[in-house]
Amino acid sequence: MDFSNHVVTTVNLFGFELWITESMVNSWIIMGILVLAAVIIRIILQRRTLQAVPTGLQNVVETIVEMLDNFTVSTMGEKHRNFGPFYGGMFIYILLCNLSGLLPGPKYVESAGYIQFMRPPTADVAVTLALALITFFMTQGYGIKAKGVKNWAKGLTEPMWPLTPLNVIGELANPVSLSFRLFGNILGGTIIMGLYYNLPWFALVGIPAALHIYFDIFAGVLQAFIFVMLSMTFVSSAME
């Protein structure tokens, strides 16, 4: 049973050999779906006139946007409302990535079984580390922007100056722990579902639905929520 990240093709670019892995292709597919949905919704909404009391599609879209904005405001405070679109987008992206284990996907390797589910991009530590690094640079960047370089550097020596290396290591541990938590949970769910589907036929009736609900849906939603919430907490506490 093979849970590794398969290489789809290799691309030769300026003398480097770039591996295009399964996670990257799945991630592009999800990005494609999201961009397509956004463009279609925008075209539909532009044709109609926007009403003050929304109905139909406008109602649904406004509800979603308002929910994500409220989520941002409740964690970061009212004055950081302009982070809403960014974290809303990040949440939807991570949520779709985590749930993509439920969708049938393209077959990259010939030796796979009958049903080929997509391998979630977030089951790859590179993807989660990239997301966590975004958070890390945002934390430090917005901290410097809000407090000035001197105060930010002084903040690392609080409350006593010998604690500086501890503070630095602690700051570095934040993105690492973010990335490993998301990676570990989603990879664990993928492995358990992959192992389960190798059982004989009578174990495959009905029970996979319950397992999918717990491992894919519940864990996926919860982990996306926790990741975005922790990211918001780090950025907002660096800016205060």
């Binding site: 290591i169 541990a173 938590r181």
Partner: peptide
């Protein structure tokens, strides 16, 4: 739990 384990392992 993770924030305690990761500095130790990393260091």
């Amino acid at each position: 739990g993770f924030m305690m384990a990761i500095p130790i392992i990393g260091c």
